[in-house]
Design a protein around this nucleic acid. Structure first.
Lengths: 131, 131
DNA sequence: GCAATAATAATAACCATTATCATTATAAGA
DNA sequence: TCTTATAATGATAATGGTTATTATTATTGC
């Protein structure tokens, strides 16, 4: 039986008001301002719990740090391999979801993640200035 | 200037003859049979090097272990969240690649990864037997 | 062959995440 | 409201995959 926790609520609310996709460390840094005694372990524990409850989703882009997104409706992400930022791909600009495979694929498909990558416009402009 | 290395060749050849997607630890375990003195650091260094040369690709499915694939032509993967296996989605069963975004997406897209997930048929059957 | 230097083996260090555990907070019943 | 049961926390240690370090070895060009 799950009990209410002020810390979990703060983490969830923080994620919901962000449009980017913070890492656990960022969540810890920012949630700590209003909850100075919260511990990093509590952040990790609640992020995992919220993921398993389906209230948030974890984004993995292979750079060694997980990111978290309170928007669990299906959408694509873009990862800048230069600055590390992860952004949403606006749905109207995304191609149709490839989430369904034909019935003859033997394995059961429960979900699908789509991750684009490249060097974002900001990084491109910076490197052009630097030469 | 890059020099030839027997170890790097062995790692590349090993990956090319596998149809699954071994982890660095698996590469180490198996390549060591023919190269008993190879070190795990050498495996990691060469896997990274081969990735940056574009000769192999790294697959990240968010379970904390990276996998490697000598097939660099675009294709989709399926990750069983139960047994951890990663398999190729047969191209004829995959939906069309969503690799191109419309031109008005401001960021530059260099690539795209698509990862399906679920409980594979083998795991499903096992859990049915267990009850 | 011989010098220059890239790559290796062995090992230590790193660091994001998870586990441990005594303490605190929450929920439910008397 | 007091009490009890137990979920959740904070502090910290441990884990484990990956990377860095460094003396030594292997490869390349002359």
């Amino acid at each position: 039986m799950m009990k209410y926790s002020r810390q979990r609520e703060a983490i969830k609310e923080y994620l919901m008001e962000r449009r980017d996709h913070p890492t656990a460390e960022m969540v810890y840094r920012d949630v700590r301002e209003a909850n100075p005694k919260i511990s990093l372990g509590t952040v990790y524990r609640n992020l995992s719990l919220l993921v398993s409850l389906g209230e948030i989703q974890k984004i993995c882009c292979g750079d060694g740090v997980e990111r978290y997104d309170a928007n669990v409706s299906p959408h694509y992400h873009y990862h800048c391999t230069c600055c590390g930022r992860v952004m949403d791909v606006p749905p109207e600009q995304a191609p149709p979801s490839p989430i369904r495979l034909r019935e003859d694929f033997p394995e059961e498909v429960e979900g699908c993640t789509v991750l684009f990558h490249g060097t974002c416009r900001d990084c491109k402009e910076k490197s052009e200035k630097t030469g």
